[in-house]
Each structure stands twice: as structure tokens, then as C-alpha cells.
């Protein structure tokens, strides 16, 4: 397997593992700052005039964040691997 694909897979797996691990472990019972800000606004008597059509359960939310991180990790890993190979994609023979 070319170095760029090894890096891509490796970084994607690492990022997903960190996101899922933190979400289920250390951060499982922690509220987010976004939630705290939302609660502060609601405490002021504000009612949101629009709400997201998408409602995610906690596991779905973790999975989607992991997907986002995994996609980013895969691309970043590919870039790092390609640079390490010393043959940036744009300069390879087509």
C-alpha cells in the first residue's frame, strides 16, 4: 500500500478513535459550551424562531462527528503521506 493511503487510513482511524473515545469516556457526562449558551438564552425568555429539521440522538451525533473527523483525517493523512513520498499528486505522471 502506498504511503499516502497508509497515512490516510491511519489518521482517519486515529481521529475516529479519539472522537468516539472522548465522547463515550471523558466527555460522556460533560455539557458542551454551545448547550450552556443555549440555556442562557432560553433563561432570558428567548424562543428560537427556527429549529433544525434534523434531530440526532446522542449515538447518532457521535457517529456523525466521527464521520466528519474521519473524512478530515483521511484527507489530511493522504496529504501528509503524499508529501512524505516526495511526489505530490500534481507532479505525478498522468
Amino acid at each position: 500500500m502506498a504511503e499516502r493511503w497508509r497515512w490516510s487510513l491511519g489518521l482517519a482511524v486515529l481521529v475516529v478513535a479519539i472522537i468516539v473515545g472522548v465522547s463515550l469516556g471523558l466527555g460522556a457526562n460533560l455539557g458542551g459550551t454551545d448547550d450552556l449558551a443555549r440555556q442562557a438564552a432560553l433563561a432570558d425568555g428567548y424562543h428560537p424562531w427556527f429549529s433544525s429539521v434534523l434531530t440526532l440522538t446522542k449515538p447518532q451525533e457521535i457517529a456523525m462527528f466521527a464521520l466528519q473527523g474521519g473524512l478530515g483525517g483521511a484527507v489530511l493523512g493522504y496529504v501528509l503521506g503524499a508529501l512524505r513520498e516526495g511526489r505530490p499528486a500534481s507532479r505525478q505522471p498522468r
Binding site: 481521529v15 479519539i18 472522537i19 472522548v22 465522547s23 471523558l26 466527555g27 460533560l30 458542551g32 462527528f65 466521527a66 466528519q68 473527523g69 473524512l71 478530515g72 483525517g73 483521511a74 484527507v75 489530511l76 493522504y78 496529504v79 501528509l80 503524499a82 508529501l83 505530490p88 499528486a89 500534481s90
Partner: peptide, 21 residues
């Protein structure tokens, strides 16, 4: 510079997905 541009965007994707305690 396409590779580095992709890397810059991907890093934003990764970091903004990481909810950290």
C-alpha cells in the same frame, strides 16, 4: 499547492469535529 489547500481544509474538518473536555 492543491495538496496543502486540501490539508488546510481537512485540518479544519478534523479539529472542529473534536469535542474535547
Amino acid at each position: 499547492s492543491r495538496l496543502l489547500l486540501a490539508g488546510a481544509g481537512a485540518f479544519t474538518f478534523v479539529m472542529s469535529a473534536m469535542k474535547l473536555p
